[in-house]
Amino acid sequence: MLIKIAHNYYYMVAILLFIIGMHTMLTHSNLIKKVIAMNIMDTAVFLLFVAVGYTYGGAAPIVTAPANEVLYVNPLPGSLMLTGIVVAVSITAYALSLIVKIYRFYGTVDYDEICLIRSQE
């Protein structure tokens, strides 16, 4: 069991990252930290994907290399994750711009303080 886990350590890292992200998301009241946590979660999934595509001893799949190289790294997960990163970036950007606007209303990005302000109104 342990050996299995050790062999698949990158899955474990990915899951660990995912849990870290989720935990941050749940426990931190700062909105920006929440966005960061979201990114950590996304990154965990990206890592998992890229790790899935990786082949031991494989080379980058570029056509210019001489043709006797047999093992290639699967390029698909990598390129998909590039798209995933783009998506994550756009979500982050949008979330940050929303936070800026929320800041404009409350003067804080801390969630607890926002609740406090709202409850006093």
Partner: peptide, 16 residues
């Protein structure tokens, strides 16, 4: 006291 409607913690917790 902080568990109001906009409390993302609660929503996320619910999701989890």
């Amino acid at each position: 006291d902080q568990w109001t409607i906009k409390n993302l913690n609660f929503d996320n917790l619910l999701l989890v």
